[in-house]
Design a protein around this nucleic acid. Structure first.
Length: 302
DNA sequence: AACACGGGGCC
DNA sequence: GGCCCAGTGTT
């Protein structure tokens, strides 16, 4: 246990020197800005989020601003960050904050967790990074750092386990300020040094206490169970093509023009139905008594 | 517990 | 071409 305190102190000291100057860490950031950054960073790398975050917060600085925006503007501003449902949920989140909390982001974890698009990670991250309070922030970086440092494994299990959560909680310092710094520091170590692909153990502040390094950096135990998500020819690729088309369109797009971006008509029809059901796309039927899918037009929702 | 869900960059 | 990225919501 004394070991934990020493390792933690070394990581914190490393963070004091090596922390990146990210805009959502600047002194003038707002809690809402922190939440926006966390949602954008859900599966999108920092380098791509940074410029998008600056433009987004300049355009919609508060929950009230985003709540009042046309959804089509929100989806266009999201651009190619990926998983556009996050943009939709971020606006729903803004509207919920306005309606339920008077436009002020709540600071307790359970209330944050109840917001659209906010799951266990984001609720804990906002609690720590926006409000400086103790929480167990367990993302892919922290999972990997602890897997190597403590468990001596190359990578964490594909799915997060209860044991991991307990371990992570045991590593979070008791007091709010240090806990929040530890959360940022352990994530940063995973992002900059203890990376998934080619870890820079020579630059690691706790390399001398790392069980994985001591064991000679053995390979991934779970490699045989990991299954990469398919991409080419999938519904996700088809949906992406449609969204890109509608983002760039100035007005409603006729069905024929939509069909031109995807060769498989059956698959496209299924994806369009799903996009409409998800609220990412609006379909306007042509005037007449029998709605004809081929005569409909498509656009981003208002 | 398993799946669906974008997009880009790196090895 | 496989792998990874500050995950969430649904089934």
């Amino acid at each position: 246990m004394a070991d934990v305190a020493v390792v933690r102190a070394d990581v914190l000291a490393w963070f004091d020197v090596h922390a990146r100057d990210l805009p959502w860490r600047a002194p003038d950031r707002t809690p809402w800005g922190v939440l926006v950054s966390e949602v954008m960073l859900q599966q999108t790398p920092v380098v791509r989020v940074e410029p998008a975050w600056r433009a987004w917060l300049e355009r919609w600085p508060t929950p009230g601003d985003l709540a009042a925006a046309p959804t089509s503007d929100v989806l266009r501003a999201w651009d190619r960050l990926g998983y556009p449902r996050r943009a939709l949920r971020l606006q729903e989140c803004a509207r919920t904050v306005v309606e339920r909390h008077g436009g002020v982001l709540p600071d307790d974890e359970a209330t944050l967790l109840a917001l659209p698009g906010v799951g266990p990670y984001t609720a804990a991250a906002v609690r720590a990074f926006a409000f400086g309070r103790r929480s167990v922030v367990l993302d892919t970086n922290v999972r990997r750092v602890l897997a190597r440092l403590v468990a001596g494994e190359a990578l964490p299990a594909p799915a997060q386990t209860a044991a991991e959560t307990r371990l992570a909680a045991a590593w979070v310092p008791d007091d709010d300020a240090t806990a929040a710094r530890w959360s940022a520091a352990s994530m940063e170590l995973g992002a900059l040094v203890c990376t998934a692909r080619s870890p820079r153990c020579d630059a690691c502040p706790v390399a001398d206490r790392c069980r994985w390094l001591a064991a000679g950096r053995p390979g991934d135990l779970h490699a045989h169970r990991r299954r990469t998500q398919a991409w080419t020819g999938t519904d996700r690729q088809a949906r992406g093509r449609v969204m890109a088309l509608l983002r760039d369109a100035l007005g409603p797009v006729p069905h024929d023009a939509v069909a031109a971006v995807w060769p498989d008509a059956t698959q496209l029809a299924r994806c369009l139905d799903a996009l409409v059901a998800d609220g990412l796309v609006a379909r306007d039927d042509a005037p007449g008594d029998a709605p004809d899918p081929d005569a409909a037009t498509y656009r981003l929702p208002h």
